[in-house]
Design a protein around this nucleic acid. Structure first.
Length: 594
RNA sequence: GGGGGUGUAGCUCAGUUGGUUAGAGCACGUGCCUGUCACGCACGGGGCCGAGGGUUCGAGUCCCUUCACUCCCGCCA
């Protein structure tokens, strides 16, 4: 028998009636009636109410113990009278009558209460993470995370995938995010980099003939944090398969994600066969490559309307003449909304850094007219055309943005979300997945005006690989795909380019010479030259999946020991200063900041 | 690197137009209370109002600087 317990705190019920029990845990809550004391004892599994009255010699001592003291209680399981049953806890039909107890771990005064639904500052939560993690909601989130990862692992194994570890100390790569660097003692002046993803390794695993690989892989990127993005490290379900085309990757991932989301959430999956949307369609209709498809609002391009003579909206017309575009969206059935609602949207848009949103509401008395600040600029014919183009009806409001494509996409994507929320168009009880496909291989860097890889440089371009027209690289599409769920980018993947000659050509377009490629990607390019199978994969973000399942907006709520926004661990005091001799060994010196 | 928000008791927060001794709930301490489950009641300890400077007869409150936390933009193949 265990020295500490015969049962956990979530275990006792009517079956244990009259039995002796030994339970250990934290004092979650006391209710002291002076002559009668209730103690809720908590462990990982649940709560058990324990009771003692003043006739017991132990009463006085127990009464004095502060919350969160760890104790062992010895007592008898007794059945609660009907009116004192607590249906909120697993053990609510019984309680333990305390005969003896022992203090296992004392506590100082708590810097933050454990028993409370209150919210606390991140600072205190992160510094005392071990207390924070005792609290119910986050404790359950972390358990959920563990279960999801175990489930994924076993499903992947069932699907015939093999799990492999890849190095944590590897080489810095020029593409992508900023690397975390680790100085090498044995190779003075040289550095390892922590992997941003096991990208090259997983491809090397395919070249090595292992066929189907997965890993719950830590990834390290030294970029600034966001609510949904930890600084430093995050986890991906890294997957790679040989001898597959895009569709075969889709099949595996759809099946897996549907299983995971069905098992761990009550929310409905809108379509188990994820709809596919081309990147260009997504940018047009949703202004974003991570559209929230729960939101029914769709963006349309009506630039042409502003070239008509019966449209007098001179500001937009002038901009259109000089190359701007006009796109807009329809807020359905908003004729009864107040002026302040519309102005609020316009003001909000300006706060987002745009030039604002023009709007008018469609009315019909004798004839169709536009009501609102810019409504008068449109003839009835023009309005009819707009209604046709945008699928708008009388009583709807049209919001318009005019400007450079990128800015228009941006503000309308935000407006779509904002208006969708304000009009309560977004069903919070569903998951709406989609594939975004046909990403461009290259894009123009806005600052340098140079052509760069738009996603992953190792992706396979679409078209006949033996006779690819590279004269207009910006038109080239790649077998590159993302999964988006409820507006969250869940994963990114691609069919890889396994043909070295083609890879040199593509890198050349992005400004890398053959020599550059040979140096920077030596492991990969070398391997591809010795008989590489066609292969492809994907890497769903574990943290984001858990966030969706746990319905949390902040990644720290599903991360056991996260860093704060400045990439500091307040509990462990990382990063920290190091000893002079450590620096010396590494041949490093710190330049003082002035 | 840039913009917004917050900072008052151990914790969560009030604090009016600049005006006496800065409040509440929880936690902690003392006492009362035998069926509570957010138990109740009474009393008590606890404050460099993030830090520094300024305006003023007088600053938690106004101004400047700075620090911390957070959200967003940039960044994140």
């Amino acid at each position: 028998m265990s020295k500490y317990r015969t049962h956990t705190c979530g275990e006792l019920n009517l079956d244990n009636k009259g039995k002796n029990a030994l339970i250990s845990g934290w004092i979650n809550k006391k209710r002291d009636h002076g002559n009668l004391l209730f103690i809720d004892l908590r462990d990982n599994y649940g709560l058990t109410q324990c009771v003692i009255d003043k006739s017991s010699a132990k009463f006085k001592e127990l009464e004095k113990l502060p919350l969160e003291t760890v104790i062992k209680i010895k007592g008898k399981v007794i059945v609660r009278s009907k009116e004192t049953i607590n249906t909120n806890i697993l053990t609510g039909e019984v309680e333990v009558s305390i005969e003896d107890f022992e203090i296992l771990g004392r506590t100082k005064e708590l810097p933050m209460p454990v028993f409370s639904d209150q919210e606390y500052s991140e600072e205190i939560r992160l510094k005392y993470r071990f207390l924070d993690l005792r609290r119910k909601k986050i404790h359950q989130n972390i358990i959920l995370r563990s279960k999801v990862i175990s489930f994924i692992r076993s499903e992947m194994q069932k699907l015939g995938f093999l799990e492999f570890q890849t190095p944590i100390l590897t080489s810095s790569s020029p593409e992508g995010a900023r690397d975390f660097l680790v100085p090498s003692r044995l190779n003075p002046g040289k550095f390892y980099a922590l992997p941003q993803a096991p990208q090259q390794f997983k491809q090397l695993i395919m070249v090595s003939g292992f066929d189907k690989y997965f890993q719950i892989a830590p990834c390290f990127r030294d970029e600034d944090a966001r609510a949904d993005r930890s600084p430093g490290e995050f986890y991906q379900l890294d997957i790679e398969m040989s001898f597959v085309e895009q569709e075969e990757v889709f099949q595996v991932v759809e099946e897996l994600l549907v299983k995971v989301f069905k098992k761990f959430s009550d929310k409905k999956i809108l379509s188990e066969k994820f709809p596919r949307i081309s990147y260009s369609d997504a940018m047009l209709k949703y202004g974003s490559d991570k559209p929230d498809l729960r939101n029914p609002i769709i963006i349309s391009d009506i630039t042409e309307i502003f070239k008509r003579d019966d449209v007098k909206f001179e500001i937009f017309k002038k901009l259109v003449k000089s190359g701007s575009i006009v796109r807009g969206l329809v807020a359905k059935d908003t004729k009864d909304k107040t002026r302040s609602f519309f102005d609020g949207i316009d003001k909000w848009a300006k706060d987002q850094g745009s030039s604002g949103l023009a709007y008018f509401t469609l009315e019909k008395n004798q004839k169709i007219s536009g009501k609102g600040p810019v409504g008068k600029f449109f003839s009835e014919d023009a309005l009819k055309e707009i209604m046709k183009e945008m699928d708008a009806k009388i009583g709807d409001t049209i919001f318009l943005s005019c400007g450079q494509k990128e800015n228009v996409e941006n503000i309308l994507a935000l407006a779509r979300e904002k208006i969708g929320n304000e009009l309560k168009l977004i069903d919070k009880k569903i998951f709406s997945f989609c594939w975004v496909v046909n990403y461009p291989m290259f894009e123009l860097d806005a600052n340098s005006k140079k052509i760069k890889f738009s996603h992953n440089p190792f992706s396979m371009p679409q078209g006949n690989v033996n006779n690819l027209d590279l004269s207009n690289p910006l038109n080239l599409k790649a077998y590159q795909y993302d999964i988006v769920c409820n507006g969250v980018e869940l994963s990114s993947g691609a069919i890889r380019n396994h043909i070295p000659e083609l890879m040199y050509k593509l890198f050349d377009i992005a400004g890398y010479s053959k020599k550059d490629v040979d140096e920077k990607f030596s492991g990969m390019i070398n391997a591809l030259s010795y008989g590489a199978p066609p292969h492809g994969g994907i890497a769903p973000g574990i943290d984001r999946i858990i966030m969706l399942l746990a319905d949390e907006k902040n990644i720290r709520e599903i991360t056991m020991f996260p860093m704060n926004q400045n990439a500091q661990d307040l509990m462990m005091n990382a990063p920290s200063n190091i000893e002079e001799n450590q620096l010396k060994e590494l041949n490093l010196s710190i330049k003082k900041k002035d």
